[in-house]
C-alpha cells in the first residue's frame, strides 16, 4: 500500500503540469484551482488501482482529470456560467492577442465545458476517436463540435492579429 502511494505521488509529481494546466484552464481563482486539484488527485487515486497501463499515463491523467472537472462544472453550472462569461467578455474587450500563448489564454477563457476539453485534447495531439473515448462521446459528435468551435473562434477572433482557419 505504501509502495503504491509512493508510486502514485511520483506519477502526480511527474504529470502535475497537465493537472495544473487543466485546473487553470477551467478555474480562475487560486482557491478554486486548489479545490479542483484535490478532487482530481482523489479521483486519480480511486482509479489508480484499476489502471492497467493499457494507455499512456498521461492519457489516463487527461481522461480522469477532465471528467472530474466536467462533473464539477456541471454541479456548479450557474456559478461557472456567470463567472466565465464575465471573464471572457473582459478579456476580449481589454486584451490583444500579442502572441500564441496570449491567444491560447483567450481561447481557453472563451470556451466552456466539453468544448474546452475537446480543444485541449486536440491541442495535445489526440485524434477525434481518442478524444471521443476519453470524454465518452461519439467520434462524430467530437468532429461536429470541433468544427463548430473552430468556426466560432474564427468569427470571434476575426478582428484580432490571428485568424483561426476552418477545417
Amino acid at each position: 500500500m505504501e509502495l503504491q502511494k509512493r508510486d502514485f505521488v511520483r506519477i502526480v509529481a511527474e504529470n502535475q503540469g497537465i493537472i495544473r494546466s487543466l485546473c487553470k484552464a477551467y478555474y480562475a481563482g487560486n482557491e478554486d484551482q486548489k479545490d479542483v486539484f484535490q478532487d482530481i488527485v482523489l479521483q486519480l487515486w480511486k482509479s489508480f488501482g484499476s489502471f492497467r497501463g493499457e494507455s499512456k499515463i498521461s492519457t489516463w491523467i487527461y481522461k480522469v482529470s477532465l471528467n472530474t472537472i466536467l462533473a464539477k462544472v456541471r454541479k456548479e453550472k450557474h456559478k461557472i456560467t456567470t463567472e466565465s462569461i464575465g471573464n471572457a467578455a473582459l478579456s476580449f474587450s481589454h486584451a490583444k492577442a500579442d502572441d500564441d500563448v496570449e491567444l491560447l489564454n483567450q481561447v481557453l477563457q472563451y470556451l466552456k465545458g466539453v468544448d474546452k476539453a475537446i480543444v485541449i485534447l486536440y491541442l495535445e495531439g489526440y485524434k477525434n476517436k481518442e478524444i471521443s473515448q476519453m470524454l465518452d462521446l461519439t467520434a462524430t459528435n467530437v468532429s461536429t463540435r470541433l468544427s463548430r468551435v473552430k468556426a466560432e473562434l474564427s468569427a470571434k477572433f476575426k478582428n484580432q492579429h490571428y485568424e483561426l482557419k476552418q477545417p
Binding site: 502535475q16 497537465i18 500563448v101 491560447l104 486536440y122 491541442l123 495535445e124 490571428y162 483561426l164
Partner: peptide, 25 residues
C-alpha cells in the same frame, strides 16, 4: 493560421504550469 498553430502554445502553457513543484505531503 489554424487551431493546430496553438499546439506549441499549449505545450508552453503546460510547461509553465509544471514548474510549481508538487508538495508530496
Amino acid at each position: 493560421m489554424n487551431l493546430s498553430n496553438l499546439k506549441p502554445a499549449w505545450r508552453q502553457y503546460r510547461l509553465v504550469n509544471s514548474m510549481q513543484s508538487v508538495d508530496q505531503a
